[in-house]
Design a protein around this nucleic acid. Structure first.
Lengths: 238, 238
DNA sequence: TGTTAATAACTGACTGGTCAGTTATAAAAG
DNA sequence: CTTTTATAACTGACCAGTCAGTTATTAACA
């Protein structure tokens, strides 16, 4: 009933939308990452995600069955390449273990502070309790792999006598904790404090402390890092 | 309109409620802490808080003007005594700085893993972005004080030659990061992993690493802790 | 080459459910 | 019989997920 109003684009060209089946998923994931980053999982509005991706909410559901799957896709896109990069670094047997550890920590820190991926840890911490399935997903796909990577570097270093025999599982947490704290701080309190955190200073202090506390008991002090084994690592800002 | 139905407690004794103006606030705060702990700030339902405190939702608003103020009250109750305890520990000039640091870190770790206060950091990390006023409150009342406390211990130790001259602001973060990670892990992923984290092992590894990385450059290795200056500290479980 | 039929892509109004905060009412206390 | 303390029903706002209908694109046919 009622007149089918045909007004709209009547005169010109520009269609109201275009069919873009192939390009959509990536665009949606990118938009989702931004919105999830800003608001968290529960508080993110799918209408915002859709708007940012230039589509309507309904269209979103043509590509992802629900909010949770969209979130998983966003996490995978943001995190997996980073872990893979770390695994590549660790694979070179010629690099001293301490250098590998430094490259990995530095690389993670760089990613955390620049890419959108940096918000993921905060996000998972925030929502793990209320969304156990997401927690399990993140635990399986990110945490387990990351811990395995760092554990293997530590074990390797101990076996070669480059590190003193530390308790590996505990030490992995000590290694990663400051980096996570920086990432979390960035999204939670940096704005409140008003000044940016001294990322380079913190990373440097952490690498220094790691070197000292991992050094075998009889070792003389070894220079901070030299220019020797500096392979391609995270990033080297001017 | 319609009949004012007067049925109800007609016959028996037991009054529907009793006047308890004085006892209420604490009971409500305690209930609130539990609910906030389980669900976070945004997802916590005030109806649950009321139910747990044995009152109705409306009654809650007789004691607290809104959700945010209730949350602040809960945080104050849970956190402030802990910081005060740390400040007392640091006030004794006879205790070696490393011992003070160890006591504080051990004390915080013990609190984090046993009391309901342990959920607060996760909570604030989760909600700071969406509730800036809460973030500011927490930053001012907790973070600033805690950082000041640890900074003073480090500076004191450096001045007395007990620590090498580390960058203080960065080192404070390194000191606190593993403890926060433990607290966050407890509420976010412990259930997912299925096994409890090795708190004692992690704390021990951290204290050990701290001792090594803070030691003045020329110092010989000093024994882990001795029995010397062990004042009243956090807790000593069997 | 132009016309039309078929369909895949897309839209946005709607539903059902949740929850912070309000208020009319009434029981206890004094 | 007035004041204080409490209740429970109510309001208004929000949002994930659905679906009936609309539009761009493609294929078939003339």
């Amino acid at each position: 009933m009622s007149v089918p109003k045909d007004e709209g684009q009547g005169n010109g060209a520009a269609p109201r939308w275009r069919r873009r089946k192939d390009a959509r998923p990536d665009e949606i994931v990118e938009a989702a990452l931004e919105v999830f980053a800003r608001r968290g999982f529960a508080a993110a509005r799918l209408e915002d995600v859709a708007a940012r991706a230039g589509i309507s909410k309904g269209t979103l559901y043509l590509y992802f069955p629900n909010k949770e799957e969209l979130f998983k896709a966003a996490v995978r896109t943001a995190i997996v390449p980073g872990i893979a990069a770390g695994e590549r670094l660790a694979a070179d047997p010629a690099t001293p273990s301490l250098e590998v550890l430094r490259s990995i920590v530095g690389g993670i820190a760089a990613r955390m502070m620049t890419s959108p991926a940096g918000v993921i840890p905060k996000l998972m911490i925030a929502e793990a309790g209320n969304f156990p399935e997401l927690a399990r997903f993140y635990f399986d796909e990110v945490i387990r792999r990351g811990f395995a990577l760092l554990s293997s570097v530590l074990e390797h270093g101990i076996a070669r006598g480059e590190f003193r025999p530390v308790p590996v599982a505990a030490t992995v947490r000590l290694v990663i904790a400051p980096v996570l704290l920086m990432a979390v701080w960035r999204t939670s309190f940096e704005a409140v404090e008003g000044k940016p955190q001294d990322v380079d200073g913190i990373v440097a202090a952490h690498l220094d402390a790691m070197g000292r506390s991992l050094a075998p008991d009889g070792a003389e002090r070894r220079p901070a890092s030299g220019g020797a084994a500096r392979t391609r690592a995270g990033g080297d800002p001017p």
